[in-house]
Structures are given as C-alpha cells and as structure tokens.
C-alpha cells in the first residue's frame, strides 16, 4: 500500500516537475510547481514525518507558490504563451541540467547507502521547539534570532520602498 502510494507520488513529482519547466503558460507552470511541492509534502506524510510535511506545505505551497501566483497575476499578458526556447538556450539548458545530474548521480552512487533499522521516530514538536530556542545543547537560538532580525530588516525595507512620499514631505 505504502509502496504503491510512494510510486504514485513519485511519478506525480517527476511529471509535474517536467511540466513546470516545459509549460509555456507561466500560470500553468506555477500550478504544476504547486502540485510538485504538494506531492513532496505527501511523501513526507507517507514517511510519517508530519511536521516536515506541514512545514513544506506552509512555506512552499502556502507561501512561495502563492507569492509567484500573485506576481503572475499582477503582470499583464500572463495568459499568452511564452516564446519557445531557441536552439542555443535549449542546448545550454540541457548541458547545465546534464552536468547537474552527473554530479548528483556521482555523489549518490559513490556513497554506500546503509539500509535503516526500519524504525523511525519523528522528533516531537516539543523537542523541535526546545532545540530551536535552546541556548545550550547545540541549540539554534543564535541563528534563529539572527534570521529574525534579518527578516525584520527586510520587512521594514519593503515598507519603506513601497511607501509613497508626498512632495510636501521632502
């Protein structure tokens, strides 16, 4: 049962991934990206790694894809077909992806993968939270705070850029 579901989702991931890069309508590409992302989340759920699955949904599906869709909606002509790739670009794309695939396969195949013990315990939410905000025990509070400040700065910057200044303010 699990194996069947795994293959279904894997095929979905691959097919939607391919459609994402080959679709000539930008909105459709974004929707295929969404399906890919959701299928990956489904794989996480299948492995009973629910927390990561939910995080995948929130950040990638609910956040990034929505952002992309929004950007697409704001541009006019979003319904028309994109121009087809030229020969040069096709060759370059194939070369790049080919290189990437080679490196990837080389690394994977070069390593010996040990079969796991079969038992997998998801870390509890409490543990994740504790680790994230822990000062000791290799806790991640420093990077966490650093990222918070970075995001805050980015947010303030966005607001400043988006604000309209009237002539009288100058």
């Amino acid at each position: 049962m699990k194996a069947i579901l795994f293959y279904i989702f894997s095929v979905l991931i691959l097919a939607c991934g391919i459609f994402t890069v080959t679709s000539r309508k930008i909105y459709r590409a974004a929707i295929f990206l969404l399906l890919t992302v959701v299928s990956v989340a489904a794989l996480y759920f299948l492995m009973e790694y629910t927390f990561l699955g939910v995080v995948q949904l929130v950040i990638y599906a609910g956040g990034i894809v929505v952002l992309i869709l929004f950007a697409v909606l704001l541009t006019h002509d979003s319904g028309s077909l994109l121009p087809p790739l030229g020969v040069k670009r096709t060759v370059a794309t194939f070369a790049l992806t080919g290189t990437g695939l080679t490196v990837f396969l080389y690394t994977i195949l070069g390593r010996k993968v040990e079969p796991g013990s079969g038992e997998f315990n998801e870390p509890s939410v409490k543990m994740i939270g504790g680790q994230l905000l822990d000062l000791y025990n290799f806790g991640f509070v420093l990077p966490f705070e650093a990222i918070s400040i970075l995001l805050l700065a980015a947010m303030v910057g966005c607001i400043v850029l988006a604000m309209k200044f009237s002539k009288t303010m100058n």
Binding site: Y27, I31, L34, V54, L57, V58, A61, V66, F70
Partner: peptide, 15 residues
C-alpha cells in the same frame, strides 16, 4: 497549513 492553500484555487479560478 492546508487552509492557506485555499487562496491558490481562488486565484486560479479567477485568473
């Protein structure tokens, strides 16, 4: 997380 996906279908339907 799931309810944050509803917006995508509305955006898609509208577009």
């Amino acid at each position: 997380a799931i309810s944050s996906l509803t917006v995508i279908s509305i955006l898609t339907g509208g577009w």
